[in-house]
Amino acid sequence: MGKLAIETRGLKKSFGKTHAVAGVDLAVSAGGVYGVLGPNGAGKTTAIRMLATLLHPDAGEAQVLGYDVVRDARAVRSRVGLTGQFASVDEDLTGVENLLLLARLLGYSRRRGRERAADLLDAFGLAEAADRQVKKYSGGMRRRIDIAASLVVTPELIFLDEPTTGLDPRSRNQVWEIVRGMVAEGTTVLLTTQYLDEADQLADRIAVIDHGKVIAEGSSGQLKASVGAGSLHVRLRAPEQRAEAERVLAGVLEVQVEPSADPAALSARISDPERVARSLAELSRSGIDVTEFALGQPSLDEVFLALTGHAAEETPEEDAA
């Protein structure tokens, strides 16, 4: 483990009676992507806002790149970039005007600022939209200009708050490419997401947050291992045989077998991998044709369910973020 990019101890923030962040300890090493995973209202955004010096913690301490977020706020601000629903660009201005504005504010001369804005627009595939007002951008373009705005001065650490929420798959992949590119260049990325596959794809380490607390932390593999050996997915040729297959599998595996949304599929969490081979033999002996039979690690969805007792996409009534 190298130098720490972020370190927090007992970080807390409440809004009235809502404890948005209820004592968070994080240790994020420099380099790579750190994922903060949690449902809406888990306190992700509040935590990031404190780390980015936009919000004073009620209690606890946080250091970002070695600087205290309260006492050395300006030092933190000059070293981090921030992108999210809460840190956006001016919709009335054009793409190039937004970037030039930030470049000037960050100390570029007018000429160098223009060059910098043009370079960024090029790199993010926005050159043709440079002179169009941002409010006329599509969702994907909008997200890219938001990220570009955080890179006017190359940050050592960038916060991306739900960078792909609401994007179509193609735009989402573009954002993922950008994140990987930034990491390859040595920027540390702290990314919040509600999407388990996003954390799985991008993050080296993941903190799972629920109700303002970190309930699990580790690599995606470690998190998955913590909930059991894995899961078995079976798909049948004939959906009408599913009830029978469920009975056969449950008998051999001695665990709960769940019918999937797909009418021909079943899944089960496995505690004893030895029994899996026997269950396949048992299915074929019962005359049930199987088109798919896969043993995999549990998905982060299952991890989340196991850790929190509720599904990841569930939205609590109170949105503390």
Binding site: G107, A123, A127, S138, V153
Partner: peptide, 30 residues
Amino acid sequence: MNATSAEQASAPVTEDALRSVLAGERPSSP
């Protein structure tokens, strides 16, 4: 709204361009 057509027309994010952008200078604060 012609955003969709522009989206298709816009070049994808390239790794080289991103690299050179991230190697940018750090001017002093005004």
